[in-house]
Design a protein around this nucleic acid. Structure first.
Lengths: 356, 356
DNA sequence: CGTGCGTATGACAACGTTGTCCAGGCTCTA
DNA sequence: TAGAGCCTGGACAACGTTGTCATACGCACG
């Protein structure tokens, strides 16, 4: 028999299969076993480095593996073993620079635990977040790191009960009890605004996202707290909420800066808003102070440098991932809420005195 | 009650599930079938929306699914069907802002095709790239988008032969024939340098990565070509290759800018280098022109604005992913090399006249 | 020489899903 | 009313791997 039959079984119905959707007929352990003249289980032992195989047998098996280009099918393995050694990451937008380091940190930890990372973006859409998270669960990821877009995560209850480790990052989970890793949004914003007040500002604007987003609400709360601590009543005209697209941020900023009593400083609620406001301020004649939440690249090179309340995105990701694996170890049981501190980075824009 | 079979055919173990935190013991179609009082295959039909199920039966099945919190096990499905509806992305560094949009674009296309994206970073390490790519193949991803770190990809030959669709992005594959999507690194760099020459510069520095990296080599080639076209002999002191960490880039730039005949302009080979050089130039007394490869955020807000040769990262990712799925469709057969054009974005720094 | 023991190997049954195929029960027509 | 067709629904065998258990062998010992 010169023809080394790929699969001795029934070659006929394999090639006749109408749905040509199979992987291009890959060799299996059975094929390797046949070629090496050993049993199926022996191949499995060699592939997994289990003991109890003669060096000579092992060599024959290795040769067969090499010759056939065999690669273990992890789907079958997962089915049999129950664990996938992969974790899922549901994030909001891969292109947002804030999530790059976070995502990378999660991957780093996953890798250290021998796990792969499967991820996808929710694009800030709660339905899509759910769809994605459940798809990952259907893949039987061992755990899930979620940056929530929605505010109701009860849909994950059966999964968590079934043993899927789950950690929420950046924003808390909605209506379920779960591990959460956050930045100290409230404290960070309060400190940032207090910094402006300390430099003599009283009329301070706030531009941020919709308060239904937890981080946005917390930062707004921090703003209010700082103002109240200083005994400054906040006027409605100083606040713009739920505005993130550049054009509307621009209009909001310009509105605050015009009129008889314009603000002398602005606190921005996230990196995208900050960038737009920088553009607006660059066009203003008199200097306006600025403190932004989230660090932005090159902030130190602008004139003036941009003072920010910086989050440690990598630490968020790392902490979350580590908690995830501790859940999987069984080391962790009680859900906790962890808040990581923020850091005020002064670069000039936040230290400008009030003008006008 | 003695511990008998883990999963009795009775729906009795439902209560067990509710009370105890049984690990990884999820309900299966069999459980759903038992609870709904129907056959296994009927559940499968309902779950997959196949026709041939009475509305009444369907309702019963749905109720059982709901009650048990059943979620189809895609590992088993994959094993049976042969396709995983997932693709792998091997990139270099998730935290590099250049890869954010690229990665996002790939995910977008994957999503449009109903596929999940599994990814990981090679951290510029060829061994890690291989390890990662093969791990993804073991997961039986349908296809692979690879941003190469190494320059020998023969290890993927068995996989490609077995039907794993493969596309390389940003850098070409090494020693195998495969689809490649690149930016026009040569042309872009040549145009960028020519732009500086057109503004009167003759002593132009080049700071880039190691020439063993394809993109770096091409950009260097573009630099040389532009100089040669203008009849300017390049001096060794003008070139710094293989330098990317900030400290050494800084020293390289400072070296070029000192001495009796300093360069009057610098062309930088990638975004990380550009950022560092901007910092150095900000400290210089006389203005030095700068054109950088890769766009950087806020480049327009600096004084002067930074002129760059911009790549369309999203287009790279999109094109690659689309080719991947066309390979999977069977629409594509012959490997091709696609080069996407770059775009010179003038913002000021590249239009400075020579000083000194 | 029989017994016991340890070691290498293989047979076989899961894992949870889907494709195939067949069995009833129904409707429709001649 | 019988036969032909349709619609439902279910039994069963894969898919490729790993855990369990049995076998065959070599060897030392009584």
């Amino acid at each position: 028999m010169p023809e080394t039959a790929r699969r001795a079984d029934r070659p006929a119905d394999r090639s006749d299969r109408l749905s040509g959707t199979r992987y291009g007929n890959r060799p299996t352990m059975k094929d390797v076993a046949a070629r090496a003249g050993v049993g199926l289980k022996t191949v499995s032992r060699v592939v997994n480095g289990e003991p109890g195989v003669t060096p000579d047998t092992e060599r024959r098996v290795q040769e067969a593996i090499e010759a056939l280009g065999f690669r273990r099918n992890d789907s079958a393995r997962v089915l049999r073993k129950g664990r996938t050694a992969s974790i899922g990451l549901v994030l909001e937008d891969l292109a947002d620079p804030f999530y790059g380091p976070l995502s990378r940190a999660v991957e780093e930890v996953a890798r250290a635990h021998g796990a792969l990372l499967i991820n996808g973006s929710s694009a800030e859409d709660p339905d899509r977040e759910q769809e994605l998270a459940l798809a990952l669960c259907a893949r039987r990821v061992d755990g899930l790191v979620v940056i929530p877009a929605g505010d109701d995560h009860r849909y994950l209850e059966p999964e968590i009960k079934a043993g899927v480790a789950t950690v929420f990052v950046d924003r808390p989970a909605g209506r379920i009890d779960a591990d959460v890793v956050l930045s100290d949004n409230f404290g960070g914003a309060r400190d940032g605004v207090a910094h402006l007040i300390a430099h003599g500002h009283r009329r301070i604007g706030f531009i941020g996202d919709m308060p239904r987003i937890h981080t946005a609400a917390e930062r707004l709360r921090g703003y209010r707290a700082a103002m109240e601590d200083a005994g400054i009543p906040v006027e409605d005209a100083w606040m713009s909420l739920g505005v993130t697209d550049p054009e509307r941020v621009r209009r909001a900023a310009e509105a605050m800066l015009s009129g008889p009593e314009p603000v002398t400083a602005i606190f921005t609620g996230n990196n995208r808003v900050t960038v737009t406001v920088i553009r607006v301020l660059a066009e203003q004649e008199r200097p306006v102070a600025l403190v932004g939440f989230d660090d932005i690249e090159l902030a130190d090179l602008l004139r003036p440098g941009v003072t920010v309340v910086a989050q440690d995105a990598a630490a968020l990701g790392r902490t979350a991932a580590e908690r995830l694996f501790r859940q999987l170890d069984g080391t962790l049981i009680t859900p906790e809420r962890i808040e990581l501190p923020t850091r005020l980075v002064t670069r000039g824009s936040g230290e400008l005195p009030p003008a006008g």
